[in-house]
């Protein structure tokens, strides 16, 4: 396999790759149906993957930034306290069948976790993770990848991009050495010439011009629009937790078996207690202030600091939100000067 080349991948060959991965004990995470729901879960075969779903409800960030992660453990007590750092290794993982929008999020996460010093746990996970994204043939009302510089067949963040072919099978674009190694499990593959017809990508009309957002957000800081829009927001952590780019966490120390451990757990700026001080004062007392923070972080503060957006337009937040909050809808209205 050559990096930068496109190969033909038949479903049977893909199944053989899955079998090889299962045999080698590689963890494969893919969108899988559970009752009415599609979640990103471990799979053992291609048949288990919900290829027809627009998106899984949760994101692949769990592969590199787990919901609960042990940072250190300790045993003993008093003068005789022994700390133990975890081994910075991670299980080999393939994230399969996520969409190109989500694949872009790994870069965003890396900017945070390797910002001023490298996060060894995150880096270990990322190094051991191969991203195989599946190009989109459909989009729904929640999608807005094209508004934030992405697209249904974007390659950024993927090691391998699969695109469905008319008549079945996939075109496989080898983008990195990891992608090369994964596809190599299939043995010899035929390169795909220009006659290989891809299933068409969906039209995703940009909903807003992201370049105009920083200015619009600065101008709207004191606007009543934040309080208005967030009246229905319930203040749970769903949007931040399903979001592929959100990386806020809480540190919890737990006693266990005569010792204990320090855990890093997902946290959300939408929760009331996120900024609650021990004194009882809360600088973001109202949901409107928290909504403003969420939006401004993603489209103003993060771009200012990192020259990149902290949103990939996947729409998972809107789909999962029990109160139907929508970043896409809100930002469209904001940039139209409403």
């Amino acid at each position: 396999m050559i990096i930068g080349e496109r190969y033909q991948l038949a479903p049977k060959t893909l199944e053989a790759i899955f079998a090889a991965l299962a045999r080698d004990g590689v963890r494969v995470l893919a969108p899988r149906r559970v009752d009415q729901h599609v979640a990103l879960l471990p799979v053992k075969s291609l048949a288990e993957v919900a290829l027809d779903a627009v998106q899984a409800s949760g994101s692949a960030k769990a592969a590199v930034f787990p919901p609960v992660e042990q940072l250190l453990s300790f045993t003993g007590s008093g003068q005789d306290l022994r700390l133990q750092d975890p081994e910075p290794t991670a299980p080999p993982t393939v994230v399969f069948g996520i969409r190109p929008c989500e694949a872009r999020a790994f870069k965003s996460l890396q900017l945070v976790f390797d910002w001023d010093s490298p996060d060894t746990l995150f880096d270990a996970h990322l190094a051991m993770t191969t991203v195989v994204s599946l190009g989109c043939t459909q989009a729904d009302e929640a999608c807005f990848c094209t508004s934030v510089g992405g697209g249904p067949r974007d390659t950024q963040g993927s090691d391998l991009l699969l695109q469905p072919l008319q008549g079945g099978g996939f075109a496989a674009d080898v983008l990195t050495a990891k992608g090369q190694a994964l596809l190599g499990l299939a043995g010899e593959l035929l390169p795909l010439g220009p006659e290989g017809m891809l299933e068409p990508a969906p039209e995703v009309e940009p909903a807003f011009d992201a370049a105009r957002l920083p200015e619009a957000l600065e101008a709207a800081f004191d606007s009543p629009v934040w309080g208005e829009e967030s009246l229905r927001c319930l203040g749970c952590g769903t949007c931040a937790f399903v979001c592929p780019t959100c990386s806020c966490f809480d540190i919890q120390d737990e006693k266990r078996d005569g010792g204990g451990r320090r855990l890093r757990c997902w946290d959300s700026c939408g929760l009331h207690q996120f900024t609650l001080h021990a004194s009882g004062h809360n600088p973001r007392e109202t949901q409107g202030q928290r909504w403003r923070q969420r939006v401004s972080h993603k489209f103003l503060y993060f771009p200012e600091r990192f020259s990149a957006a902290a949103c990939v337009g996947c729409g998972k937040c809107a789909r999962a939100c029990p109160a139907d909050m929508s970043l896409k809808e809100f930002l469209r209205a904001l940039t139209r000067g409403r």
Partner: peptide
């Protein structure tokens, strides 16, 4: 095993109105 402690269940429930929840 799929629960991520997002507390959407608590936030959506009309009876979970305690300002200081046991969880916190």
């Amino acid at each position: 095993s799929r629960c991520i402690k997002c507390y959407a269940c608590r936030a959506a429930c009309p009876m979970c109105y305690c300002e200081r929840c046991t969880t916190e």
